[in-house]
């Protein structure tokens, strides 16, 4: 199957996904389950990585800013900008593409190879709508919250690193993070996170839903889903940055 055919099939899938749920109460239950599986269970890893990446960015900046002409508050400023512009929305999404993407592909793929999806279809249920729509809604609404959390924890991690290593003063760092606050950059990050959330929910679903074979193929599909989701996130990051900041 060529790439173009895959893209076409992906959009045909989306047409089936975005239909009105057959039963609102069942959809609501599925949505809460997905918020827990895709969102709440990702808080820990995102928080952990954001905190330490923020710390590393602050330390790296401090170590590279040894010219006395450059003010120390730039360390806080650089950490804040790095976290808001790139780490929180983009790298957190790449991390989620791995964690959540493989979960989505393997769970839907296993349902496919064990005929659970056929069972849904035989019952008269639109299986794509039932399985994928709650994931998309949960991701699109929850991931921006994760991104905001990552921004705060990354900036906090930078401050904590400075305090522990004494590479810079807390006062300088706080002055840096307060410098030149631009609300549009937050909007830019949240717009990116919504787009990436959509990709993270739908691309792995596509790979899982159309898997054929057995356990081995489900494993391969999971790997492919993570790779393609990461590639698409990185490419979209480039185009969105051009569009929104260029």
């Amino acid at each position: 199957m060529s790439y173009i055919e895959h893209v076409g099939k992906y959009f045909i899938m989306l047409k089936q996904v975005f239909r009105s749920p057959q039963k609102k109460a069942v959809f609501r239950d599925a949505l809460f389950r997905e918020v827990e599986d895709l969102g709440l269970k990702s808080v820990g890893i995102v928080a952990f990585i954001a905190f330490f990446v923020g710390g590393v960015v602050a330390i790296q900046t401090a170590l590279n800013v040894d010219n006395p002409m450059i003010p120390k508050y730039l360390i806080g400023f650089a950490t804040k900008r790095s976290m808001i512009l790139e780490f929180a929305p983009t790298f957190a999404s790449v991390i989620l593409a791995g964690k959540v993407g493989s979960f989505i592909t393997s769970s839907i793929g296993t349902m496919r190879v064990t005929e659970q999806i056929d069972a849904l279809e035989v019952m008269g249920i639109n299986s794509l709508n039932y399985l994928v729509l709650p994931k998309v809604i949960a991701a699109v609404f929850f991931y921006p919250l994760l991104v905001i959390l990552a921004m705060f924890l990354g900036i906090f991690g930078g401050w904590a690193a400075g305090s522990l290593t004494e590479l810079f003063h807390s006062v300088d760092y706080i002055a840096g993070i307060q410098l030149d606050f631009n609300p549009f950059l937050i909007r830019y990050a949240l717009i990116k996170s919504v787009v990436f959330a959509f990709v993270i929910a739908t691309v792995p679903s596509y790979h899982g839903y159309y898997v054929k074979g057995g356990a081995l193929e489900v494993g391969r599909a999971s790997t492919q889903a993570v790779v393609w989701t990461s590639v698409i996130v990185i490419l979209l990051n480039y185009f969105l940055t051009q569009m929104l900041l260029g």
């Binding site: 389950r33 349902m111 005929e115 659970q116």
Partner: peptide, 21 residues
């Protein structure tokens, strides 16, 4: 209409196809 018809159909799959979760 096909989905409506399928509500009149019961199916027992080879591997049972029960929902794991």
């Amino acid at each position: 209409e096909k989905r409506q018809l399928r509500q009149d159909i019961g199916m027992v799959f080879q591997g049972s196809a029960l929902f794991d979760s």
